[in-house]
């Protein structure tokens, strides 16, 4: 027995058991989630495979609009975050500002706290509103067009961008800097103008990380409940909010809607995984030493 334990390979295998168990739990959880959405729900007696929930999505206008709304919000916030992060990163590299760690602080701010910040700043009686009043731009707090709980969920987007930009920046700055160190001199000697250098060389070599960061941001905001619940539109809610409400609802008829939304989330998850894998396979991943 002792000999067995001394065997390197055995120890290695044993040591990865705990994490494997957790991943198995994770995948089993996903499996159950998928299975339920196709109608197999042992506990309440349903055990036939059905596409009912899939059809419900196609039929249910409320859910359809919610899907589009959520998709747009997530897409826009992820896109803006990535674009801003690229602009800031290029700016920091060009001007050689290496000590900019304070820009990463939003990563340490939880989403519900970002919601609080939004409320403090953008509520009708919030700080910005007061500044507008004292500057004479508005005459009363009621006149302030708050971006909280607004029609287009602008507040939600701003909140996500606050954190998202910092996150993407933390990822791509290092990569861009590394690439810049190698290729900037080459481009400079070729008399390439800086803008062209960024477009032809710096940006394409960072593209993999940009895409993967985008996917991660998109996935998170698509499925996250906290922010849209707190500062999102209350009459036209986003998908995670609707889903959670239906999930908690004692009304039996709400369960199918919940499961339909669950199906949508699963589909989005699958799409993201496929794209992510494609990026990894085609990219510099295989020669890279750093994984992101």
């Amino acid at each position: 027995m002792k000999k067995l334990l001394e065997n390197r390979k055995v120890i290695r295998v044993l040591s990865i058991i705990p994490i494997t168990i957790l991943y198995l739990i994770l995948f089993y959880g996903i499996f159950i989630s998928i299975v339920r959405s196709f109608g197999i729900y042992e506990a309440i007696g349903l055990n036939k495979f059905t596409l009912k929930y899939l059809i419900d999505i196609i039929m249910n206008k409320e859910v359809q609009f919610a899907i589009i709304r959520t998709f747009v919000v997530s897409f826009v916030e992820a896109l803006i975050s990535v674009i801003l992060a690229v602009l800031i990163s290029v700016y920091l590299i060009k001007n050689d500002i290496t000590n900019h760690k304070v820009l990463y602080v939003p990563i340490a701010v939880p989403h519900i706290v970002v919601a609080m910040m939004m409320i403090l700043l953008f509520a009708q009686n919030g700080f910005i509103s007061r500044i507008f009043y004292h500057l004479g731009i508005i005459n009363d707090s009621q006149e302030f067009n708050s971006i909280l709980n607004d029609k287009y969920n602008i507040g939600v987007i701003v909140a996500y961008v606050f954190k998202g930009t910092a996150y993407v920046l933390s990822v791509i700055y290092l990569i861009m800097k590394k690439n810049d160190y190698r290729y900037f001199e080459v481009a400079k000697l070729m008399n390439v103008k800086y803008g062209r250098y960024v477009r032809d060389i710096l940006l394409p070599t960072s593209m993999d990380s940009l895409i993967t960061s985008f996917l991660i941001l998109f996935s998170f905001s698509f499925g996250a409940y906290e922010l849209p619940y707190m500062i999102g539109n209350t009459s036209n809610k986003l998908l995670p909010v609707i889903a959670y409400e239906k999930h908690l609802s004692p009304n039996l008829y709400d369960k199918p809607i919940f499961l339909s939304i669950n199906l949508v989330m699963i589909v989005i998850g699958v799409i993201i995984i496929v794209i992510y894998k494609k990026v990894l396979d085609n990219g510099y991943f295989k020669k890279q030493k750093h994984y992101i």
Binding site: Y23, I25, L26, F27, Y28, G29, I30, F31, I32, S33, R36, L215, I216, S219, F220, F222, G223, A224, Y225, P240, A243, H247, N262, M265, I266, I268, G269, I272, I273, Y276, K277, L280, D281, F285, K286, Y291
Partner: peptide, 30 residues
């Protein structure tokens, strides 16, 4: 080996790539 690494990597990153909602619901059941 490099060939399997991408697949393995995607598996490890599942919690980040798939919307939280999906697996929280399932994990809640488990």
């Amino acid at each position: 080996s490099m060939n399997h690494r991408t697949t393995l990597y995607v598996i490890f990153l599942t919690p980040i790539l798939v919307p939280q909602f999906v697996y929280f619901y399932g994990i809640q059941n488990v």
